[in-house]
Amino acid sequence: MLYALCFLLFTIGLYCAVTKKNMVKIVIGIMVMEYAVNLFLIMLGYRMGGVAPIIGRSDLESGLGGFVNKSVDPLPQALVLTAIVISLGSLALMISICVRTYEKYGTFDITQIRRLKG
């Protein structure tokens, strides 16, 4: 069920990125897609009532087996962190290109920014 919501968010982002005419809205659509995927990754590793996957002193003393049984999966969290860093980079680049394009063309409307054809 929750996964379906994630997918819905993904399709909303895709719809926005594909149909909108404004460059900034396209960028927002792409970011919505990105976050839908991040959410999906986090939910993959989530476990109802789980604990954070950080080993404390008490966990070491009581044996790691119990800890492993109740902690959430840390790997998707690492993946999401990396994906966020990457999306930050691409977001910065996209926004800077939007800004530069606005300076050149004086508009954010992609229907008016079409010098390249063919």
């Binding site: 792409i30 996209m94 290109i97 394009t101 050149k104 079409r114 390249l116």
Partner: peptide, 13 residues
């Protein structure tokens, strides 16, 4: 810039 934006949107998707 126009080409870069186009490339970037499709590439990011």
């Amino acid at each position: 810039l126009e080409a870069s934006f186009k490339y970037m949107v499709l590439g990011s998707i």
